[in-house]
């Protein structure tokens, strides 16, 4: 064991110098660099943290907004759907009503047309029958029948009910125009005379009598004095028959048509 105290002193100095040198070149720069790096990293971390916080807040805000929007959208959709449904139902109802109405109308029209057609058919058939009857009468009774017609008319005149007779008498007395006797065919003179005579006798007048032909009458005679008319003719019978036919057809019409007219 040998200690050189000079060397010891020198080594102490050396050591202190080394401490100073290392402090100058090693510890301080290294610790400073590390501290600064740490500070920077911390700053960056806190920056990142605050940015992340901001971003999260922003995200939260956006999320809320989106939820609200979605809710509103849902509401609006629901509302629109309800409205659309209502509208659809209403439109459907309208269309259904319209179709129903049209169908009803169409049915009514159809019924009407059918009824009209039926009635026309019936009417035409009836009329045709009557027409044929009239024509047959006209064809088979031309000429020879005049006397009978005149007789028939005379008989009818004489058999007039007193009321009508009175009316006719009054009309004949007040008439300023001649009495008019119309017949389907031209009456021969004898018949005319017979009728004129009967007329004068029955109505106690000497009114002038004119004789006209009216083919539409088919068969028979019509007497018009002023406004009073006495008629005995096949046409009148036919007319009455036709009227009765019509009445019959009317009453026999379809029930629906009755309702519609109600």
């Amino acid at each position: 064991m040998q200690i050189d105290w000079l060397t010891v002193a020198a080594q102490i100095v050396n050591f202190l110098v080394l401490i100073w040198l290392l402090q100058r070149f090693l510890y301080r720069p290294i610790t400073n660099a590390m501290a600064q790096r740490e500070t920077r990293i911390e700053e960056r971390l806190s920056d990142a943290k605050s940015q992340r916080k901001d971003a999260e807040e922003e995200a939260e805000k956006l999320r809320k907004k989106r939820e609200e929007l979605e809710e509103a959208e849902q509401d609006m959709l629901e509302e629109a759907r309800t409205e659309a449904n209502e509208l659809k139902q209403q439109l459907e109802q309208d269309v259904r009503d319209e179709v129903e109405q049209k169908r009803k109308n169409w049915q009514e029209t159809l019924e009407d047309q059918r009824a009209d057609f039926m009635q026309n058919m019936q009417r035409k058939a009836g009329h045709k029958v009557l027409d044929i009857a009239g024509r047959l009468m006209a064809e088979f009774t031309s000429g020879a029948i005049d006397d009978q017609v005149a007789d028939g008319f005379v008989a009818k005149l004489t058999d007039l009910d007193p009321e009508t007779c009175k009316k006719m008498t009054r009309a004949a007395n007040n008439a300023d125009s001649p009495a008019l006797v119309e017949s389907a065919t031209k009456l021969d003179t004898a018949a005319r005379q017979k009728i004129t005579r009967t007329l004068h006798e029955e109505f106690e007048t000497d009114i002038e009598v004119e004789y006209w032909e009216d083919e539409e009458m088919l068969l028979g005679v019509r007497l018009s004095i002023g406004e009073q008319t006495v008629e005995w003719s096949a046409a009148r019978h036919l007319k009455r028959l036709n009227r009765e036919l019509d009445t019959l057809l009317e009453s026999a019409g379809p029930a629906k048509r009755k309702e519609a007219t109600d």
């Binding site: 080394l18 070149f25 790096r37």
Partner: peptide
């Protein structure tokens, strides 16, 4: 000492804080 100081000096002369 020289070795220690030199090495330290050379390295810390180009210290990076990044």
């Amino acid at each position: 000492m020289a070795l220690l100081v030199l090495v330290s000096w050379i390295i810390t002369a180009r210290l990076s804080e990044g």
